[in-house]
Amino acid sequence: MTEKYIARSTAIAARMLGGEMMIMSAVDSTFFTLNQVATAIWQAADGRTPLAEIVARIVCEEFDVEPEVARRDAEQFVDELAQHGILLVSDRPFENPPVEAA
């Protein structure tokens, strides 16, 4: 299986509100809120850490989720955000790191 790398797009607006992340896509103005687990993945999306490592290190350890469930949920979440241009996905690490997480 190839590695997946995720990076936060800069074409978005984002801010933490009461422990959850609000995100608006500048591409299609869709508005999202991420729960705590999704927010943690989002904040770890530095373009350099493989998704599998983010899931293992953050989702499984910090939130105590079964690895299989965590991986499936994370993939689904990444696909959805990628569709709206909010996360960028690549099979290689990104060269330019994304902007500061909000």
Binding site: A13, M24, V99, E100, A102
Partner: peptide, 8 residues
């Protein structure tokens, strides 16, 4: 402002 991720 955009670096700080405001919706402007």
């Amino acid at each position: 402002a955009r670096r700080l991720l405001f919706s402007v």
